[in-house]
């Protein structure tokens, strides 16, 4: 395939995934960096386009390139500084599942503002957050996530499970903090 035909094929195969890739790249925070990463991803995808055998699998393929680009950018950047104490989240999750409630998160989720769950994902370990986001927000199957992240299926399974557990623990921990904060502010006359 040459010239314009290659370009047309590239565009029809990859452009439908542009918004999803931006959303995925934005997961870590900075919007401008995310767009830079996506642009770099498309530039590399264009060069390597002939290696894509199954155009139906273009999204996981692009995800894999994006992941490489993002990791290269952040290789020298320190890990997130605001990781919450994992054992606290695990304990909060234990309390939730011990409740016997048929929908233990119903009230918590109902009170959340749009976007806050996505934001909360940034506070759990990156490998877990990535697997959860790829599955729940971007619709990848476990097999595709294993391919994108270069880990066995079993690891994907446990990352998604544990990621959601920590996220649930985080929501609960934050929810419990709110009344305490309000009381503290009232005490300070704020």
């Amino acid at each position: 395939m040459k010239g314009e035909a290659r370009r047309a094929c590239f565009q029809s195969t990859t452009l439908p995934h542009l918004d999803r890739l931006v959303a995925l790249a934005s997961r870590r925070g900075d919007r401008e960096e995310a767009e830079d990463d996506v642009q770099e991803t498309y530039a590399r995808a264009w060069i390597a386009f002939d290696q894509l055998r199954d155009t139906g699998a273009a999204f996981p393929w692009l995800c894999k390139i994006l992941r490489m680009v993002a990791n290269e950018r952040r290789r020298t950047v320190a890990r997130r500084q605001d990781l919450l104490f994992i054992t606290e989240l695990e304990a909060a999750h234990e309390e939730i599942v011990a409740s016997d409630a048929p929908s233990p998160l119903e009230h918590l989720l109902a009170r959340l503002e749009a976007g806050s769950l996505r934001e909360a994902l940034r506070s759990i370990p990156e490998d877990l957050a990535e697997a959860v986001a790829l599955h729940d927000m971007h619709g990848l199957k476990y097999r595709e996530i294993a391919e994108v992240t270069s880990v066995p299926m079993g690891t994907v399974m446990s990352r998604i499970s544990r990621g959601r557990q920590l996220l649930a623990g985080l929501l609960r921990a934050r929810d419990e903090e709110k009344p305490q904060r309000r009381l503290a502010m009232q005490g300070r006359g704020e």
Binding site: L21, R118, A133, M137
Partner: peptide, 9 residues
């Protein structure tokens, strides 16, 4: 999570 709004390009 599937219902969360996501940024667009």
């Amino acid at each position: 999570l599937a219902r969360e709004p996501t940024p667009r390009a």
